[in-house]
Design a protein around this nucleic acid. Structure first.
Lengths: 236, 236
DNA sequence: ACAATTTTTTGATCTTTATCAAAAAAGCCT
DNA sequence: AGGCTTTTTTGATAAAGATCAAAAAATTGT
């Protein structure tokens, strides 16, 4: 079986690009694909899973855009991340066999469902897969610690610049324009993620616009001065 | 071989209590112990590893207390966590085969070194161990997201209360007093972890003292009103 | 396409936390 | 033990970001 065929099957069209199996042999990808992945659409605004749901599967974002957020008892919520094609949802649920955050689609999306018990079995058979997965988990830890740095030590303008630079980098890694960003989330979502109020986010975007760093038209944002943004983040 | 013997060997004295192998059979613990763990003292103020160091091993804290921190290009640092007996150091390094934070002993400590390549091999042989480890990694993700909530949505007094409540809980899980805390870190370390300045931490401790929540004598802190603290955190 | 809702922008003001400064306390070294 | 360094406390002031408010713009449902 060659890969022109695989491309048309279930998740075959995307699974090769996903973080999860990157670095596997063709045979391994095939196995993963045949045995486990199940394509599933999620409409804009729908939850893929909610806090407290039993943990059955990981989800690889095939196309679309998600946000994850955790809830505090008193009703406050904190957006913990935004996920795009190729990124994995549900890693935090392995810990206690329950989801501990909500995952909501910010646009019509498609995910690859990967039943975790079967995935674990396969990991026992395929050393390569297991090693990849350890790294995937560890990479998420590193990402989270980066957010801790952002929230704990950066000023508001630095946080927003870091956010935009990060988004641009991820779009660019997916062969999309890294200067023309179409934000899928509200100012409030951005604010929650960055530990700021939506008004502050709005004001900062206006300021960046006035300073010639960005062209802001609602959720369409064009990066006009990437160096300037990077300088704000402190990566001089 | 019975376990009275095991207790005297290398890491045997502590490894059974560690998060890493919890839930393993005696035989499995024995294997882990014999093949992999290597006890190593770390003096107060010394680094167990530094950012950029090649990743060889994970470390389980046997006794003592550590802090981990990441560095920003411009010299700022962010304390990302404090680790005590039974907790694992180095999980973030799996991602890129390099340590991405510094781990410093805050008191004379002993760690169990676990060479990661051997650990991975063993994980392939012992399904149980591998599953445990996946959970350990996931639990760290959940912990980090809790810190994101703290930094992104809580006010200074809530952050400090959450910090103290968390410390108390962890001490208590180790059969130490949960009301008499001896802090191993400076006010500056606490501030960095909580995204506050050391003066703010000091002022808050004084205020909690005045309000009868705590008795503060330098780094000796007694929790006088645990309910009050919990109420501040929002766990009413 | 239009009314209703949600999101975004902007202004005025207030609150929280940071900054600067200096003294007091604690810890460390020999 | 005593001098030296580091840490902690506390006060006065400043700055960053939050809050409140209202209009403008964008999105959604029918």
């Amino acid at each position: 079986m060659d890969f022109s065929e695989l491309k048309s099957v279930c998740c075959g069209c995307t699974i090769r690009e996903l973080c999860l199996p990157a670095g596997l042999t063709d045979q391994e990808v095939l196995l993963l694909d045949q045995h486990m992945s199940h394509r599933q659409p999620v409409k804009k605004g729908e939850s893929l899973y909610r806090t407290g749901d039993a943990f059955k599967s990981l989800y690889a974002v095939s196309t679309g855009f998600f946000k994850t957020s955790i809830l505090h008892e008193d009703g406050r919520t904190q957006v913990t991340g935004f996920q795009m094609a190729g990124e994995i949802l549900g890693l935090d649920a392995i810990s206690a066999d329950r989801h501990v955050c909500d995952a909501v689609a910010l646009e019509d999306s498609v995910v690859c469902e990967v039943p975790f018990d079967r995935f674990e079995e396969l990991g026992q058979l395929m050393t390569n897969l297991q090693r990849r997965f350890n790294r995937t988990l560890s990479r998420e830890i590193v990402r989270d610690q980066g957010v801790m740095l952002l929230l704990g030590s950066m000023r508001s303008e630095e946080r927003l610049a870091a956010f935009l630079v990060n988004l641009a980098k991820r779009f660019s890694a997916r062969k999309q324009s890294s200067s023309e960003l179409v934000l899928r989330m509200t100012r409030e979502d951005i604010g929650s993620y960055l530990g700021l109020k939506l008004e502050t986010v709005s004001r900062l975007l206006s300021r960046f616009h006035d300073e010639g760093l960005l062209a802001v038209r609602g959720r369409n944002i064009q990066i006009l001065n990437a160096d300037g943004l990077n300088r704000l983040v402190g990566v001089a």
